[in-house]
Amino acid sequence: MSLEIKNLHARIAGNGTEILRGLTLTIEKGKVHAIMGPNGSGKSTLSKVLGGHPDYEITDGDVLLDGASILGMEPDERSRAGLFLAFQYPMEIPGVSNANFIRAALQARMPEGEELEATDYYAQLYEKMDMLEMDRKFTARSVNEGFSGGEKKRNEILQMLMLKPKYAILDETDSGLDIDALRVVSKGVNSQRGAERGFLVITHYQRLLDYIVPDEVSVLVGGRIAMSGSKALALELEAKGYDWIKEDAAEPACA
């Protein structure tokens, strides 16, 4: 069982600029796969393309979730099929309370005609919030509105804990977190690690990988995977930067 990304080509809809250029990557259930890569290399684009964002057009390749292609699916269907994105920049939704938002997401997973049980729901929500050391006031506040950077990231992980996806893609969840928050968020993620779940963790900092220890590390450069290795690769990148890989990955002009 895995989330398989095969030779994925994607460009900005209506503009033609290709951002993902033949990206191949497998996220296995039970594993944590880390992705690093320079700014602008296409990491967030990859996560949005996987989620089905309308800004991007797939021109080639496929994405299989446990063997079935998700490319024809709407973003909400992909989510219900078990995919989760923790956003690098979570959106603010004015006037919609966090609790109602997460409830609507869970309700959307219930069979037609069945109602989510409110007391169970809140019990679960509070339990996860406690784990993430989030104040209860965040249930009544509008989704992400006025949240600090770190609070937004915690809120992403809260949603992940509530929705229990099969595959979670965490886009720079560590950026903007203080040391304590990093520990707390990592605890949340680690609590979800297990045979029934796979993770793709996008980060710039090898420090995160001390907390969430990856099974594999890949480097994304120019819209494709330039190199893969063990956790040691992250340490090497930290020491050497990306230039040596960029040179390796350089391609002939007018490819």
């Binding site: 709407e74 973003p75 989510s79 994105l85 939704i93 997401a105 509008s142």
Partner: peptide
Amino acid sequence: LEEDEMFYLQSRGIPRWEAQQLITFGFLSE
């Protein structure tokens, strides 16, 4: 409607029509 807001809600499994309803509701009820 902001497409990015819609995508955010949809990415949590909320169908598009309902995402629109939630955003509209939030917009007004503020």
